[in-house]
């Protein structure tokens, strides 16, 4: 397990977020360092997706209090594309269909935007195609899907796999995976997990949001956090996930005072 002494890549401080009149996140704290894989688990409606969406900058959320720092800088005032160009990637729970936009063109446009921001030279079409072919092959991704419009007519599994292929091609620093495992059969799950594990490395960080412990058999997290009612109520090592699998979440629904002491840093003590 990597322990990083320098400042964290992502730091969430006392984050309060609401949608309309509903408060979703109620003082969330989390600190993610380079080289780390964090799993955030929790029941439906606990605020898991809200958290990833807020970090990625999806409109429609009100930040009532707190801050999100990325590489030491507050990102809450940045547009989603600026955050993406800084290295934040969100694998979405429900990837949208983009009629008339071919998957290949889309990936190339996105990669060009990112490479430009990173000060890297433009890839030639041939270089890009070669790279894409290799990555797709590694993920057992049907090459025909490259010629199709983004996610249009893709099966649920194909959409999720497409998200991970994008992760692999775009090569961000921070990957937020929002329920990437949901709706996948065991074979697809293994493929997706392999993709994520290939991405894993000392200069990357992953925050994986999930309902189920199942995916954690394939992607072993360094830390597991339990999010209930907008707060992290428990953090631990990967064995916490097994405990949750066995016992469910109910036993963690404790008075707020106790939760706060555990969740203050989001890191196990």
């Amino acid at each position: 397990m990597t322990s990083n002494n320098s400042r964290p890549l992502l730091e969430v401080r006392d984050l309060h977020v609401s949608v309309g009149d509903n408060e979703i996140l109620d003082g969330m704290n989390l600190s993610v360092g380079l080289g780390e894989v964090h799993a955030i688990m929790g029941p439906n409606g606990s605020g898991k997706s809200t958290f990833t969406n807020v970090v990625a900058g999806r409109p429609g959320y009100t930040i009532d209090r707190g801050d999100v720092l990325y590489e030491g800088e507050s990102i809450l005032g940045m547009f989603p594309d600026e955050r993406a160009r800084k290295g934040i990637f969100l694998a979405m729970q429900y990837p949208v269909e983009l009629p008339g936009i071919r998957n290949r063109e889309f990936l190339r446009t996105a990669l060009e935007a990112l490479r430009e921001a990173r000060g890297e030279v433009k890839l030639s079409v041939r270089e890009f195609n070669k790279m894409l072919e290799e990555k797709a092959k590694a993920m057992d991704f049907d090459p025909d899907l490259m010629k199709r419009n983004v996610n249009e007519g893709f099966s649920g599994g194909e959409k999720k796999r497409n998200e991970i292929l994008q992760l692999s091609v775009l090569d961000p620093k921070l990957a937020l995976l929002d329920e990437t495992d949901s709706g996948l059969d065991i074979d697809a799950l293994k493929i997706v997990a392999n993709g994520v594990n290939a991405f894993r490395g000392p200069d990357k960080a992953i925050v994986l949001v999930t309902h189920y412990q199942r995916i954690l058999n394939f992607i072993k997290p360094d830390y597991v956090h339990v999010l209930i009612e907008g707060r992290i109520v428990r953090s631990g090592a990967s064995d916490l996930a097994h405990e949750l699998e066995a016992q469910g979440y109910e036993w963690l629904r404790e008075p707020a005072e106790e939760a706060e002491t555990v969740g203050a840093t989001g890191r196990p003590s």
Binding site: G57, P59, P80, D81, A84, L98, G100, A110, L111, A113
Partner: peptide
Amino acid sequence: DDQLFYLMQRGIKEEDAQYMIINGFCK
């Protein structure tokens, strides 16, 4: 908004994202 967000989340500027969607519509 979901389509715009999806494209922007991948690093594409809003104006380009909008144009890609419209161009796709006319394809």
